[in-house]
C-alpha cells in the first residue's frame, strides 16, 4: 500500500513538473487561442465575429513595442485598462500572477522566436 502511494506521488510530481515546463503554452491554448488563434496570429474561431480584431501575437514589430509590464497589465486588467477594446477580457480573476508571467513568457516566444 505504501509502495503504491509512493509510486502514485512520484507520478504526480512528474506530471506537475511537465505541466510547469510549458505552463505558458498550456494556459495560452486554454484561454487565449479562442480569439488570438491556435497559431497566435489573431485569427481564432471568434475573430470573424468580433468588431475589433485580436492582436496578432506573431507580429514582431507590434509585440516588440510592448514591455513585459505592459503585456502583464493588459492580460491582468483587460483591454480597457490600457485604452484598448473591452473585447480583450480581464483575466486577473481567473489567473494568478505566476500564470500571467508564464503567459508573458509564452508571448515572447510567439513573437520573437525568429530573432
Amino acid at each position: 500500500m505504501k509502495k503504491l502511494l509512493l509510486a502514485a506521488s512520484v507520478l504526480a510530481v512528474g506530471a506537475v513538473a511537465h505541466a510547469e515546463g510549458d505552463r505558458g503554452a498550456q494556459l495560452y491554448t486554454m484561454y487565449c487561442t479562442q480569439c488570438h488563434g491556435a497559431h497566435g496570429n489573431g485569427k481564432g474561431i471568434n475573430a470573424a465575429h468580433m468588431s475589433v480584431q485580436p492582436r496578432d501575437h506573431s507580429d514582431i514589430k507590434e509585440m516588440s513595442a510592448r514591455t513585459d509590464d505592459e503585456l502583464f497589465k493588459v492580460i491582468q486588467q483587460g483591454g480597457k485598462s490600457v485604452n484598448k477594446s473591452v473585447l480583450m477580457p480581464i483575466w486577473g480573476g481567473n489567473l494568478t500572477d505566476d500564470d500571467i508571467h508564464a503567459l508573458v513568457g509564452h508571448l515572447r516566444e510567439l513573437c520573437c522566436q525568429k530573432d
Binding site: Q34, C35, N46, H49, M50, V86
Partner: peptide
Amino acid sequence: FKGCDACHQDAPNSGGVS
C-alpha cells in the same frame, strides 16, 4: 460595452462561438 458577444451568440449565427 461588455464584450460578451466575442464568445457568445445572442442570435443564431450572430456572435462568437467559444
